[in-house]
Design a protein around this nucleic acid. Structure first.
Lengths: 202, 202
DNA sequence: TGTTGACTACTTTGGTTTTTTGGTCAGTAC
DNA sequence: GTACTGACCAAAAAACCAAAGTAGTCAACA
């Protein structure tokens, strides 16, 4: 299986899954979009479900890479947290793929999704973990933080904005809330006192 | 409208909505369960949607009342937070009514649900607000906390367990995670240092 | 050896009929 | 007069089924 062809298939799949959702995106059309025959798609994946997962994985990796790229280790780590939080939200908000995933529309359709969902979630923690490490090495965060345990909690706090978003996506409200949560937590993880309220920097 | 009859109707509605969900629970059956005629149900509510909301409101009030009851102001407020968190989770986990609400299965069906959802959420913050006030008066929490702003953030942190729960409800994991989040936040809101890790008290 | 696309078993869709249900209100009981 | 009832209606949901579409396979092909 040629890597370029594989990438073409995943790209086409990403496009169609995002536009039509899991159900309505057909393998035929994905194959057509990638300029290959249907059989070839099945050289790149085991099933439609597997293809969907691979698509998400590809997307998640891209997101992690892009996010790590905007992290400047010279910036104060607390600023970084807020920035990455906002960036992540914006990106998720613009992607039907993630929205469907996070609002649970896919879970019902696909069996055995839990583990794979967990893997994606774990992947998504990487940027936050990186920032925590930066913060510690900057001396801004407590040195005794359990980075591995902390990252998913922070990540969840950010994702919890979707409890609202499922309803009425007013991005400003969600961001303000995220910032409030972050400020709350920061007071806990900062080695020194917070000098100014983060909310104002939005 | 007799209050006893009204209560009977709401109780019957709660039972059926919980067992069958909003759609499949029929007004006829609710009336039968309450031992009244269908017309009488419409003396207690304006529409099926309204009845559903009233049912949730009744349930929420009961939950708040029960939760406030287990709050002993002599206990350390940080313990109280953890206790109430676990209690709330357990109770929600056992109630299809709340599960449907929180996993967003109802939102799609009912228009204009956002505001009412917001009201319920606000109601649900009361116990946490109470604990924060207790903590402040105990001198365990910082005196400058913005209780009104903080409560919904904490509440959300707890609800975010449902992002997982929508999938695979392993209550222990969720509780451990909630405790980790709480411990994180507590280090921020405690006036003094945390003396022992909360996680161990689970 | 890597790719294809016709083929099959299965699922989804769309249109139609039948049944159920939310909501009303003239009428009953007290 | 008041509190409640339940037959009634329009509208929604379920049941049905034929037609169309789709996931996945594999013999043939380049």
């Amino acid at each position: 299986m040629d890597q370029g062809k594989r990438e073409g298939i995943l790209a086409s799949a990403a496009k169609l899954f995002a536009n039509c959702g899991f159900r309505k995106a057909s393998i035929d059309e994905i194959a057509r979009g990638a300029g290959v025959a249907k059989g070839t798609v099945y050289l790149a994946c085991e099933s439609k479900e597997d293809l969907y997962y691979q698509t998400l994985l590809r997307e998640a990796r891209a997101w992690v890479a892009d996010t790590l790229r905007i992290i400047d280790p010279r910036e104060p780590a607390d600023e970084l947290l807020l920035r990455v939080s906002a960036y992540g939200f914006e990106r998720i908000d613009n992607s039907p793929l993630w929205r469907d995933l996070l609002t649970g529309k896919v879970h019902e359709l696909l069996p055995n999704w839990a583990e794979r969902f967990g893997e994606l979630r774990k992947l998504g923690c990487q940027p936050v973990m990186e920032i925590l490490r930066i913060g510690i090495s900057q001396g801004r965060f407590r040195a005794d933080l359990d980075v591995e345990a902390l990252a998913p909690v922070l990540q969840d706090m950010q994702l919890s904005g979707y409890l609202y978003l499922a309803n009425k996506p007013n991005p400003d409200d969600v961001l303000r809330r995220q910032a409030a949560g972050l400020e709350l937590v920061l007071r806990g993880i900062l080695a020194g006192p917070v000098t100014r309220p983060l909310l104002k920097s939005l």
